[in-house]
Computed example of a mutant assay.
Amino acid sequence: MAIRQRHAGPRSRTGRIAGLLAALALTALTATACGTDEPPSLFADGKVLVGTKNDQPGTAVVRNYKFSGFDTAVARRVLKTVGATPDFGIVPSEDRRAVLTDKTTDLVIATYSITVDRMKGLDFAGPYATTYQGIMVRKNDHRIKKPADVIGKRVCTWPGTTSATTLEGPEYDRIAVYEQPDASTCINDLKVKKVADAVSTDQMILYGFTQENPDLRVVPDITYGAANQYGIAMAKGHRADCLKLRDALRDYLGDNSWSQDFATSLPSIPKADATWETDFKPRTETVDSLSCRDRPRT
């Protein structure tokens, strides 16, 4: 009996240790299965890499190595709320998705419209602004006053934008649309006169161009397609961070800061549009329906 008792003790301790190890392993597997393998927060070290434009006055432009415009104001406001600051870099329109999916940039805040297709591969917090696509012409050119006047005219757009996609529709096949590499080239084409009759992109962007190009103007009564909703874009897998940005954006839209930043960055819009806040400021219900989702909430 004594021998059996002497051997029973060690076997019992060994069994308890093995059971404990098995339980720990199961806990680790369960935690992984529950989704705790989400990447570290984008805000963890307080600096966030933000891709934005450099050639869109009013929305995002670089002058003397400083980024300014409404997109950059939005970035600074909402990131401050979540305890971070933006480190800006330049991203062309056609590269906005790529810099997020290859992890070279944390966020893109670059007049990037939220679409059903883009929501499948990226998360968005937004919108932070709403605008329709329009037309810009030379200030002294009064040939284009209504949509029918654009038929047969040469209209410049650039790749990677919803503007180019919209004008590919069959209803616009009588417009001579062509692409240049970027916005600046389209603006130059318009100024040359014989190259382009008009430039088409979102009205918010076009009004920004007129602030540094007083010889150009936006035709107010011509718009194309549905409203574009600008969002803060990020790669999938950071849903908690996305929700924090959504909440920060809702607070931003809820006080006077949004209107102050918008009017400061884009003074040409309040001058031209008496109902500019109604026309360009998103509603919080829209933010809720489009933010941090794989598809819009219906």
Rank of each mutant, 00 (worst) to 15 (best):
E168N: 02
A235G: 11
R250S: 09
P270N: 09
L245N: 04
V199C: 13
Y172H: 15
A227Y: 09
L190V: 12
P296G: 11
V287Y: 01
R246I: 00
F280L: 10
Q180T: 12
P267H: 04
E168F: 01
A240G: 12
N256M: 08
A274S: 12
G254R: 12
P270R: 05
C242R: 02
K281P: 01
D261S: 01
L245W: 02
T286C: 04
R239F: 02
E212N: 15
D288N: 15
L243Q: 02
K236R: 15
M204P: 00
L206K: 05
K236N: 14
A263R: 00
R283G: 14
S259C: 08
T286D: 08
T201D: 11
L290I: 08
V199P: 07
M234H: 04
R293D: 14
L216Q: 09
T264E: 14
F280I: 05
P220H: 10
Y178D: 07
G225N: 09
M234S: 02
I187R: 15
I205V: 14
A272H: 07
T278K: 12
P170D: 14
C242P: 03
D221S: 14
K236E: 14
R217W: 13
E179I: 03
Y224F: 15
K244S: 09
Q211V: 09
K271G: 10
G225P: 04
G225D: 09
R246P: 01
D221I: 09
V195Q: 01
R295C: 03
T278D: 13
S265R: 11
D273H: 12
S268K: 06
R174M: 11
N228T: 11
C242H: 02
L190S: 12
T286H: 01
N228E: 15
Q229I: 00
G254C: 13
A248K: 05
A248H: 06
Y178R: 06
L253F: 03
Q211A: 08
R239D: 00
N228W: 07
P270T: 06
A235R: 03
S200L: 04
N213Q: 12
F262W: 07
D202G: 13
V219W: 04
Q203V: 12
I175S: 06
I232R: 02
N188L: 11
H238V: 02
E285G: 03
Q260K: 15
C242L: 01
T166D: 10
G208T: 13
K193H: 11
K281Y: 07
E168T: 08
R174D: 10
D215G: 15
T278I: 09
R293A: 15
T284H: 08
M234I: 02
I269K: 09
L290H: 13
Y252L: 01
A248D: 06
D251V: 10
D288M: 14
S200M: 05
I175W: 08
T275W: 03
P220C: 08
D273C: 05
T185L: 08
L245T: 00
D182V: 06
Q211D: 08
G231F: 02
L253Y: 08
D247H: 05
R250E: 12
A240N: 06
V192I: 11
L243Y: 02
S259Q: 14
K244M: 09
Q211R: 03
I187Q: 08
T278G: 09
I232M: 13
E171R: 10
K281A: 05
L243S: 02
L253R: 07
G231V: 04
G237I: 01
I187P: 03
L249A: 04
M234W: 09
R283I: 10
L216A: 05
